[in-house]
Nucleic acid binder design. Structure first.
Lengths: 140, 140
DNA sequence: CTACGATCTGGAGCGAGGTCTAGATCAAGT
DNA sequence: ACTTGATCTAGACCTCGCTCCAGATCGTAG
């Protein structure tokens, strides 16, 4: 294997980028923004070495971001986790609030989906009846 | 009534803002960006008068935006509708592509939801067992 | 007629979330 | 030693989608 044995335990920024889907730029940006739970370790030469726990946390971040959690909230959450045990109630509140937003978002998307489906049906019908059937409704 | 009879047929920008949830700034911005199907009529004094059809179109825009359609796509769609009959196939393609994105988004959100639900469960359990149970897992 | 609120235009500004550049350094293969 | 590619830092820059400002005008109520 081309990587050292240590690579099994710690990953370079590039490897983490691959595994998380984030760019190396974004990884550095997140770190600067205090979105990580702990400081990232470095090699003697100054290169970042990520642990499996770092990657797990980043994967959670990715999921939360995907679902629309703002970086500010993520930062707050990271700070709570960094703070250690004792603030679980607040973490719970934060996550639960986010879950409610996600639920609302899912519902909104489903409504949009029906609208789209309906409109797709309208166009499909137009096409089936021939393109030049003369019907002209700007809202259709 | 304080508004004239004509108000029943055409609305001021402020009234449209109320009905669509968009700000008057945004309404003017959308117009400048070419997101509307037709040019908005004006009073002799230069004030915009929106028709019911304008409002309907805007409500569709709102739904599509809510579901994450970029302004550029919305603009493209508006251009197609403005172009009149004959391009229904392309409108269909545009909407269907968007529907697929919406579906993917819903699925992603549902995955996030399970993750959150699970984590909420973890914290709830911690709290139930007492805050200082000493267990410390950064990913939890 | 006057006042006052709503609207007008063009253009600047803003917040979120990255994304990229420059120039230097590190590390691994040959 | 030399080359090549990944990483480093600080900071500038970018897109998206609004949002707001200044200064003028409209229009309706009193």
């Amino acid at each position: 294997m081309t990587t050292t044995e240590a690579a099994a335990q710690s990953l370079s920024i590039g490897e983490v980028a691959e595994r998380t889907g984030l760019s190396v730029h974004t990884l550095r940006f997140y770190e600067r923004e205090g979105l990580l739970v702990g400081p990232v370790r470095r090699t003697s030469g100054g290169r970042r070495r990520y642990t499996a726990a770092d990657v797990e946390w980043l994967l959670i971040c990715v999921k939360l971001r995907e679902s629309g959690m703002p970086l500010a909230d993520l930062k707050h959450f990271a700070a709570l986790v960094r703070g250690g045990p004792g603030n679980e109630a607040e973490r719970l509140r934060l996550l639960d609030a986010h879950r409610q937003r996600v639920d609302a978002q899912i519902q909104a998307l489903e409504e949009c989906r029906s609208l789209i489906t309906w409109k797709v049906g309208v166009y499909a019908e137009h096409l089936a009846r021939g393109e030049a059937d003369g019907l002209w409704d700007p809202t259709a």
